[in-house]
C-alpha cells in the first residue's frame, strides 16, 4: 500500500503533475553535473533545480496543504524567496574561488575570454601555498 494524502481528484492530479515536473527538472540539472565536461559549464547545471525545480515542488506542496487544511497555506513561499536570494551569493563566491585557483596555478588558458578581463583584484591577491 502506497501512502498518499486523501485529496479530491483535481488537487491530487495537479499535485502529482507538479511534483513530477519539479523532480524531473532537478534530476536533469544533477545529470548535467555528470555530462558537462568543464567546471565552468557544470556550475550552470544545478540552477535548474534551484529555480524551476524548487518552484514546481513548492507549488505542489502549496496545493496539497491548502486543500488538506481548507485554508491558504503559503509558507512554502519563504523557501522560494530564501533560495532565490542565497543562490547568487554561493555560486558567485564558488566561481570566483575557482577562477582564483585556476589563475594561481596558471592554467587560465583552458577557458575562453571573449573580452579583456576585469578581474584585476583577483590576480593581484597574495599567492600563498595552496594544494587542491
Amino acid at each position: 500500500m502506497i501512502a498518499s494524502p486523501d485529496l479530491p481528484a483535481w488537487a491530487a492530479l495537479l499535485t502529482a503533475l507538479f511534483v513530477l515536473l519539479g523532480a524531473g527538472l532537478t534530476l536533469t540539472g544533477s545529470l548535467g553535473l555528470l555530462r558537462l565536461r568543464q567546471f565552468y559549464e557544470r556550475v550552470h547545471a544545478p540552477t535548474l533545480g534551484t529555480t524551476l525545480g524548487t518552484v514546481f515542488v513548492l507549488i505542489a506542496s502549496i496545493i496539497c496543504f491548502s486543500v488538506l487544511q481548507t485554508r491558504p497555506v503559503v509558507h512554502e513561499i519563504l523557501i522560494a524567496v530564501f533560495i532565490t536570494v542565497t543562490t547568487p551569493v554561493s555560486l558567485i563566491l564558488l566561481v570566483r574561488a575557482a577562477l582564483f585557483r585556476d589563475r594561481v596555478e596558471g592554467n587560465a588558458r583552458n577557458f575562453e575570454w571573449r573580452a579583456p578581463s576585469s578581474e584585476r583584484n583577483v590576480t593581484s591577491a597574495p599567492t600563498e601555498d595552496r594544494s587542491s
Binding site: H44, R96, S118
Partner: peptide, 30 residues
C-alpha cells in the same frame, strides 16, 4: 540583477568592476 542573472540557468555572474562599470558573465551557450 545578480539574482536575475543567476536565476536564469545558462548565465552566471562572475564579477563586477565598479570603477569601470564592467560586468563579467559566464554563459553556457555563447
Amino acid at each position: 540583477l545578480a539574482c536575475i542573472i543567476t536565476a536564469t540557468p545558462g548565465t552566471l555572474w562572475v564579477g563586477f568592476d565598479p570603477a569601470r562599470g564592467i560586468l563579467t558573465l559566464h554563459i553556457l551557450d555563447l
